[in-house]
């Protein structure tokens, strides 16, 4: 994500480790404390649903558009959900314009997996003409400012945007699709949310900043639905974690997801 450039990073790493040794963080937070979170919905008029989330200085905008398109060949009678993430170059001096990089693709896919494995949409009900016309739900994640923990911000924003999404309603009469003036809320069956932990040394930190992400040994993103089932897990970082650590992390993540859920 941010550049891993030699000397600066090593100094930063040493400082962060030093502060962590005393049980503190660079910004004075407790290890299991989120930064300030804000959530706004309905921020964009031309979308079917939208939400903007800030966590500290990280800022993510999600726009949902529902349109008619072709289904995949292997699922002719099912609607389509597509997640896409853009790291706009506004967000950080190291972000460059161009096609989404590995980090953007990972972000989109982790959010997508969370939504998809929770089966939040009943795709069978999003078909107009089986095999040729179905509703496509586009979830575009737009990163406007980066200071770590995009996973949690994006998943919260995506969920909030989908919750407020009003899709167009069409009628089908003998193969002809007509747009009506009505809109209809998307029926969501679950609400999966992601919590990201960073392992630095022997500590697990909630809501890592950009600096913390730069020096972390391992990263764990866990997505829970409202019944505390895990919908998806993504481990990142160059170091492994023990089974014991995993249990500890899951326990912590579960407590934290309840906190995030209050914003929805």
């Amino acid at each position: 994500m941010a550049s891993k450039s030699g000397i600066v990073s090593r100094l930063k790493r040493r400082k962060i480790h030093e502060v962590l040794g005393a049980g503190n963080r660079m910004d004075g937070r407790a290890l299991d404390e989120y930064r300030e979170i804000t959530l706004k919905t309905g921020v964009m008029e031309k979308t079917s649903g939208s939400a903007e989330v800030t966590i500290g200085k990280s800022r993510v905008l999600v726009g949902v558009k529902v349109q008619i398109g072709r289904p995949f060949e292997d699922t002719p009678g099912r609607g389509v959900l597509m997640c896409n993430a853009e790291f706009t170059p506004l967000a950080h001096p190291t972000f460059e314009p161009g096609r989404p990089g590995a980090n953007a693709i990972e972000l989109a896919r982790v959010v997508d997996r969370g939504l998809r494995s929770a089966e939040i949409l009943d795709f069978d009900k999003l078909s107009l003409i089986d095999g040729s016309k179905v509703y496509m739900v586009f979830v575009d994640i737009y990163v406007l400012s980066y200071d770590g923990n995009l996973f949690d911000a994006a998943s919260l924003a995506a969920m909030a945007a989908l919750k407020t999404t009003k899709r167009p309603v069409h009628t089908v009469k003998s193969g002809v699709i007509k747009l009506t003036k009505k809109t209809q809320a998307l029926k969501l069956r679950k609400s999966p949310l992601a919590v990201t932990l960073a392992k630095i040394g022997d500590n697990f930190l909630v809501d890592p900043t950009a600096d913390e992400e730069e020096v972390l040994d391992a990263r764990l993103t866990v997505t829970f639905d409202e019944d505390d089932n895990i919908c998806t897990i993504q481990k990142g970082g160059s170091d492994g974690i023990t089974v014991e650590e995993l249990h500890k992390a899951l326990e912590l993540a579960q407590v934290k997801v309840a906190e995030l859920r209050k914003y929805l």
Partner: peptide, 18 residues
């Protein structure tokens, strides 16, 4: 200068590629 439109800035949705 780089000018770019978000995929959700217009109707219908636009490809994010420049």
């Amino acid at each position: 200068c780089r000018y770019h439109m978000s995929p959700f800035s217009v109707d219908p949705r636009r490809s994010p590629a420049p």
